[in-house]
Amino acid sequence: MPELKTRWDIFCTVVDNFGDIGVTWRLARQLVAEHSVDVRLWVDDLRAFERLCPQIDINLSQQWQEGVEVCHWPSEWPVTSAADVVIGAFACQLPHDYMDAMAAREQPPLWLNLDYLSAEDWVIGCHGLPSVKYQNVQKYFFFPGFQKDTGGLLRERGLLERRQQFQLSSAAQQQFLQGLGIERACDAQLISLFAYENTGLASWLDTLAADSTPTHLLVPEGRVLGDVERWLSVGELAVGALHVRQALTVQVLPFVRQDQYDYLLWCCDFNAVRGEDSFVRAQWAARPLLWHIYQQDDDIHLDKLEAFLTLYTKGLSTPAAEAISGLWRSWNAGADMAEHWLATRKHEAELQNHAQAWCLEQALQADLATALVQFYVNWI
């Protein structure tokens, strides 16, 4: 892929705390680092961004972070020229003055709507198609996805090799965990929990506590902490809090940067994740996972859940596929988890092998940043 001396503008409105900015920040950095393009990332909520990138100065309207020009998206739009490639992340509405600037260019920019990740079949038919038009500027759909003829998934160069090397080194894992204050017992399974509020959590924690195998549950700061507090019958859980109930140890971790979160996922035997960015990163961890999908009106998110399960469970034995599918469905319904978790545990080895195979299968596709660059090259 040739280097592109082009300028890209990526627009992000923070809707769900960290998911939208997590994806766009990761994409912006990769475009700069691997494709040598100039990127401006426009963000409307720098406080949410600060959690992912602590170096951010929330008081600055413009700053540089890891080669990316980060700009605060103001309520009153400044006079600025339009870029060669314009990405509106997740159907966010661009400022009207900026759209006029796009139309005023001698050569109209490539305008893309980077849509939400989905495994639904219709995505393949819509990926890359024209969308609306503003004056002389045509917008196109761009869908990340798990199948050929979609935009693929975010994956930095060398990611899987770094992950494999880390997972083969007990010393590297121990050093990382100790840096977070985690002392893992040698016989305990390590599980990470990053989720939205969920009424089904108590039944899962009950099952883990009663298990013959000890579990060390790592809970980064986030929305699910309230449910953990209620199960423990304690007040507000602070970072570093450690509680033991029977076979279950619960430990609260700080909200970590994206690169550290990767290492956390790589250390764990099983990862419960939420949203989009952490969902993709858990797949690159090549470990069994549990996805808490973002809830949408009329339960249309459940169609997305089923579409992914249909793809993901291919190649599994029928009992293993039924076990993991039942676990995901009960989790996303806020239902009792006990029966499905115990069924999943019976197929632990098969699910682990399958997670590794799925990771390698997805890595055969072009990554999302490369697919975007190739789309631009083909367009011009």
Rank of each mutant, 00 (worst) to 15 (best):
A369P: 00
V39Y: 08
V123Q: 14
L327Y: 05
D57Y: 05
A272W: 11
L168P: 14
A119L: 06
L46K: 05
F146A: 02
P319T: 05
A369Q: 00
D297A: 10
N17F: 12
K148F: 00
R105C: 13
H340M: 02
Q352C: 15
W266T: 12
E322W: 09
W341R: 10
C268A: 13
Y98I: 08
L52G: 11
F90G: 04
Q374Y: 00
A321D: 05
L94R: 01
P95T: 01
C267R: 15
L153G: 04
E361M: 09
W358Q: 10
I324A: 04
V239S: 08
Q173L: 02
T344K: 02
R184D: 03
Q138M: 05
L360H: 15
S170E: 09
P74N: 01
F166Q: 02
R245M: 11
L31N: 00
A371L: 00
L311A: 06
L242V: 08
W379A: 00
D336Q: 04
W204Y: 09
L27G: 04
G158N: 05
F255W: 12
G334A: 01
T80N: 03
L27W: 03
D303R: 13
N353S: 15
E69F: 08
K304N: 06
F279L: 00
L342G: 07
L112Y: 06
A188H: 12
K133H: 13
M337Q: 09
L372K: 04
D121H: 13
D303L: 09
G240M: 03
L311H: 06
L168F: 14
R163P: 10
S203I: 04
A210I: 02
V250K: 08
E183F: 06
H243S: 11
D84Y: 08
E361R: 12
G158Y: 05
V273M: 02
Q147V: 07
F18K: 09
E322F: 05
V15I: 12
W284N: 01
R157D: 05
F142V: 01
N17I: 10
L327P: 05
Q296S: 04
V70I: 14
C268K: 06
E229N: 11
L193G: 11
F11G: 10
I10E: 05
V228D: 14
E348N: 14
F176R: 10
Q65I: 09
F146K: 01
S317V: 02
P74W: 09
L248I: 03
M102L: 12
Q173F: 09
E306T: 09
I324Y: 12
T80G: 04
L327H: 07
L218A: 08
T6M: 13
A188S: 14
H216R: 13
A82E: 15
Q107H: 12
L110D: 03
W73I: 01
H216D: 15
C126D: 15
F176C: 11
A188D: 15
R274L: 02
I10N: 05
G22Y: 11
S81E: 11
A307V: 04
E69V: 12
E161N: 14
S118H: 05
A349N: 14
L177N: 06
V377F: 03
E34N: 08
Y263F: 11
D97I: 05
L117V: 02
Q362G: 10
P108V: 07
